[in-house]
Design a protein around this nucleic acid. Structure first.
Lengths: 106, 106
DNA sequence: TGATTATATAATTATTCAGTTATATTGTAA
DNA sequence: TTACAATATAACTGAATAATTATATAATCA
C-alpha cells in the first residue's frame, strides 16, 4: 500500500494545469523543452522548472541528445495512475502542430 | 473528454495529505465532522474547511441528520479516479478505532 | 576561437493555500 | 426559554508555489 505522503505529493504535481497539459502531451511522444514551450505558449524557464519538479517526482525521465533535452513519461511504477492518464484530455493536435512548425529542434 | 481545467482542479484537491486521508477514510463509511477531527487529530474548523472544498469539487456529498453532518464519497461521475482510489492507503484501523471511542456522535 | 542555441538556475514577486483563532449559526435537550 | 453541542464561517498568519526576469551553463557551429 502506498504512503499517503508520497501519494499526495505526486497528486500535487498533477493538480496544476500546466503540468497536467505537459504530461498529456508526453503521452503522444517524447518532447524537448522548446517544443513544450511552443505547445504551452509559455516561457522557457517556466517549462524547465515544471520539468524539474516532474522529474523529481519521478513522473518523467530525461534524455539529453545533442543540445536538446527530451522528456518522456515514466509511469512504469505507477499503475494507480494508468486509468487517470487514459482520461487526460488529448494534446494530439497541439503536438502534431509542433512537428510542422519551423520547429526549434529539427 | 475532460476539460483540463476541471481535471487539474479536482487533482489539486487530491494533492493534499489531509484531504487524501479524509477521502480514504470515507471509503470505509460515511463519517461526521467530529469523527474526522478524531481520525485526523486536527481542529474542527480545519476539517470543516476541507469538507467545504471537497464538496465544492463534487468529491463528497453531505447528509444532515439531527445535529450531525455526515459526509460520504461522491464518485459516481468520476470513473477515472476509481483505480487511484483503490490504491489509497487504508484508513480502516483509524476509522474502526473511532467507533470504539467515547465518540462524539453515538 | 567567438557567436549562437538550448536549457538550467537564481532571485524576485504576487498569489494561493493550509491551519489557527475567534465568532456565528444551527439544532437539541434541560 | 437557556445551556450546550456540532458545525460553519470569517479573519488572520505563515508557508508554499507559479510565473517572470535576469543570468549561468552547456553544446553546436561558423
Amino acid at each position: 500500500m502506498l504512503a499517503i505522503d508520497l501519494l499526495s505529493d505526486t497528486l500535487k504535481l498533477l493538480g496544476d494545469k500546466t503540468r497536467l497539459t505537459i504530461l498529456s502531451a508526453l503521452k503522444e511522444r517524447e518532447l524537448c523543452v522548446c517544443e513544450l514551450v511552443d505547445i504551452l505558449q509559455t516561457s522557457q524557464p517556466n517549462v524547465s522548472q515544471h520539468m524539474r519538479k516532474l522529474k523529481a517526482g519521478g513522473l518523467v525521465k530525461e534524455a539529453k541528445r545533442s543540445q536538446w533535452v527530451y522528456y518522456s513519461l515514466s509511469m512504469e511504477d505507477k499503475p494507480y495512475l494508468n486509468e487517470l492518464f487514459q482520461h487526460l484530455p488529448s494534446q494530439k493536435e497541439k503536438v502534431e502542430r509542433v512537428c510542422n512548425n519551423a520547429g526549434c529542434c529539427d
